[in-house]
């Protein structure tokens, strides 16, 4: 099972990074989502894989898995939703305002280079 999870995390990371490197905002959002899955799974995996031992206390439980990574990942999932929502909104706002969803636009109006040391 460990191999499956590790390879799944690897695949998600690779896919996420590839999509993040695309030139339009929507694939980048997809890539960020894939990376979030990968990161959350990775954090979760740091508690090691345990089957059938949920961290719910009961008298007849054989043992418990590590609850701490789970608590951290739970909030991470919710926060990554918040982050995705902000990123989506940014992408949408940029698209509506500039009529393009390209990521790397050549600055149409670069800031003029200040002449250092010159008389102001």
């Amino acid at each position: 099972m460990e191999l499956l999870l590790a390879s799944a995390i690897g695949v998600l990371t690779a896919g996420g990074i590839y999509l993040v490197l695309r030139l339009r905002s929507f694939p980048v959002i997809l890539g960020v989502s894939l990376l979030s899955y990968a990161v959350n799974l990775f954090l979760f995996a740091s508690g090691r894989l345990v089957v059938n031992m949920p961290p719910i206390l009961s008298d007849d439980a054989a043992g418990y898995t590590d609850p701490l990574p789970q608590a951290l990942v739970l909030t991470a999932i919710v926060i990554s939703f918040g982050m995705s929502a902000v990123v989506v909104m940014l992408a949408l706002g940029a698209y509506l305002s500039s009529r393009t969803d390209e990521i790397d636009i050549d600055d149409p109006d670069p800031i003029p280079e200040a002449e250092p040391g010159a008389v102001e």
């Binding site: 999870l5 979760f44 345990v50 031992m53 961290p55 898995t65 789970q70 999932i77």
Partner: peptide, 8 residues
Amino acid sequence: VYFSAPDL
């Protein structure tokens, strides 16, 4: 679910 994390 499988790895004992029902909350997640």
